[in-house]
Design a protein around this nucleic acid. Structure first.
Lengths: 128, 128
DNA sequence: CTAATAAGAGACTTTATATATCTATAATAG
DNA sequence: CTATTATAGATATATAAAGTCTCTTATTAG
């Protein structure tokens, strides 16, 4: 069990935009170069963030990506969910068992993780 | 990011042994049947638990698996680590960046998850 | 001692997912 | 119109998970 590289790229892109964008859009080429990843692959990841309303995309010359208006409210969990999906980390009781005490424990642990990620925002890392 | 089925099998096997074994060893065939998984595959998983000292294996007729002497101290985290390994969930800064604020957040979240899993033991689910 | 039982080890296969790449299309500034 | 930049879809490659098969080793009932 690992977070994907895609999640890593998404988080770093959000941080980069938050730290260095005054107002001008940043092209995927520049974002990709910073992270040592191919622009076409990164653009696929960024498209997911666009669809979730976390960033805006602007086509055409001088286009690129900017943070959405509500970017200061976006949590780590939001970004992770946008990339990894929202399904539970633990799929239990593949075999038949309606109530599963193991699942209960696993889900409670997952909640602790998510609570922490929900309380941390990219904007927290910029204010300093 | 998902916990593997192997982890699920391991947790359920531990619970089954804790709940239903008085003293006699249980063969992998029976354990596998309960979970609807092939015995050969399950045995690979159980070998990992043996190597970590969580269960004992007994070869030969009337052999099988029993919980280790210290089974009541074994946490969910111990079992998960035995199967999934102990490395961090988040590999950051693939590109060069010694100190990474994103990694810090991710690791703190992972700690919350691990703390919860460390405090839950299979034996907690049996005492009732 | 022998036959049956059961775990362990290693090679292999299959399936699924992550990580890309390539090409074509759409939008926009100048 | 042309250069630039995002989007979409198909495809390719790499890695890991999940499962199978076969052979070996250990134990014990008889």
């Amino acid at each position: 069990m690992k977070y994907s590289k895609a999640t890593n790229y998404a988080l770093h892109t959000m941080l980069f935009l938050a730290m260095e964008t005054p107002n001008k859009p940043v092209g995927v080429h520049q974002l990709a170069e910073r992270q040592n990843v191919s622009p076409t692959y990164l653009s696929k990841i960024l498209t997911k963030l666009v669809k979730e309303g976390m960033i805006n995309s602007i086509s055409g010359a001088n286009g690129g990506y900017t943070l959405s208006k509500n970017w200061e409210d976006i949590s780590f969990l939001d970004i992770i969910h946008a990339i990894e999906g929202k399904s539970s980390l633990f799929d239990c009781c593949l075999y038949s068992n309606p109530e599963c005490v193991i699942k209960d424990v696993m889900l409670s642990a997952e909640e602790k993780l998510e609570n922490e990620l929900r309380n941390k925002k990219i904007s927290d890392l910029v204010k300093k």
